Simulated scan of single mutants.
Amino acid sequence: MMELNVSEDFDFQSEEYSDLYTQSDCTAFQHPVWQTAMQQHVRKQIGLRNKTLQFRCKKSGQLVGILPLVARKKMGTNILEFANLGLVDYALPTLHTNFWQWVPNPSTLSVELDRVLGRYDMLRIKHMPSNDPNFLRLLPNACMERAKFSAHVAELGSDYDSWRTDVISKAERKSRDKKRRAMMRNGDWQMNRLTDPADITEAFNHLKLYHKERFADRPGKDMLQDGSSFRFYVDLACHSAESGFSRTYSFTYDGDIVAVQFGLHDGDRYLYLIMGVDYERMGKYSPGLLMTEDIIRDCIKDGIKTFDLTVGDEPYKAKFGTKPLAIYTLWHASSMLGTMGRTVADLMHKQKVGNNLLRWMSN
């Protein structure tokens, strides 16, 4: 049997969460290091409150599931959301692989879930890399909505040259090699994996600038230009570089930083999260493609098997032998107000009408 409770200060650095994570099918976004940083980030936000849902074995007290939520009010509506804040590409509950052995009757547990979570109008879990999560069994009235974008994932081999030959066309390889030779003739291109906090901070300042220039005309919010989110990334990168959980790659050309990439390394998977390039200086060499190749070579050297380019349908991702991964949002209305809001938003999307409610639904 299972018991549920909600905490505003759950310790994601605890041994019990570490044990749960190792026995769960999750991603680096559920890793103890990421979750600890995220909870600290949430506490700094005005109008948000941590509500971490815990599932425990009633008899032994063993932690068998965690769902990190935040509570907020929007337009008079009480909202529960996955602790995402625009920073999480893969939102999943952290559930023990044998979670359902403690749940003989999911419908009974769903009643308990409503009681423990308290009054809310809408529950939203955005960026779920699955359309059939086990958690959906606890919310029989929930629905899954396919996102308009996908994630993109490439499987790597044990040898870089063989992998490159297998997944990249001869013409594309020839084009990249030609650009690399031209680049190397005109300057010195170097890749560095950074661990010193001062070096990481300097690299992120360049990343912020290059990212702003490249994504200025794209829809959505550039999280690197938000002061709080930028500090979240820098702190995480500095504090977890030595352990290897995060990687910050800096690329220099004749000694100047011209490209930066930040990602997460968990097990045999690397998640390629953010990149920025000085395209004004380097654009003619297709530096994004070349730096990604260099990082893949580094990952294969370290025995990493999966190169995850995460969410977004940028065309360059298809040039690395990736396969698309569908992304979904889970919606669960718990009141008439929540149901009405969801219905109205659906109608507005179909009619392409924009207002505050529509913007809320898309953010």
Rank of each mutant, 00 (worst) to 15 (best):
P93G: 07
R72S: 12
A28N: 06
N356K: 14
Q35I: 04
D217P: 05
N131T: 09
S24A: 15
D161W: 01
R164M: 11
E314Q: 13
Y120N: 11
L109T: 08
D313K: 10
G227H: 12
Y270V: 08
R119W: 02
K126E: 03
T343N: 14
K317C: 02
E293C: 10
L337P: 00
V353D: 02
L4S: 06
K44C: 05
S158V: 09
V103T: 08
S162M: 08
K221A: 13
R193T: 10
N50M: 13
E81G: 03
R180N: 08
A333H: 05
D159Q: 13
I304F: 05
N356L: 13
R359I: 00
T201K: 04
Q351R: 14
A198D: 14
G263P: 06
A198M: 07
D256K: 14
R173K: 13
L80H: 06
A241S: 14
I304M: 11
R214D: 05
L209E: 09
Y21N: 05
P106W: 06
C57L: 09
Q62F: 04
H152G: 02
M291P: 03
K323Y: 12
F10R: 00
P287R: 02
M336P: 00
M38F: 04
M361C: 04
P129R: 03
E242V: 14
K73Q: 14
G283I: 10
P197G: 08
L358A: 14
R247A: 10
G157D: 14
L138H: 06
F245G: 04
Y17M: 04
P324A: 10
L109M: 09
R56V: 05
G255N: 10
E81T: 07
D196A: 15
K301N: 13
K59V: 13
D161V: 07
K170C: 09
P93R: 07
S107T: 11
E280F: 11
W100H: 01
W163E: 07
G321P: 01
Q225H: 08
S286D: 05
M38G: 02
E280W: 06
W331C: 01
L207F: 11
L337K: 15
N141K: 15
L87I: 04
F215K: 09
H96I: 00
I295Q: 01
M223F: 11
L236G: 02
T36H: 13
R115G: 05
R185T: 13
A237F: 08
H96Y: 04
N105W: 00
G263S: 11
S60T: 15
K350D: 12
P324C: 11
G288H: 03
A216I: 12
I300W: 01
L20E: 04
T201P: 01
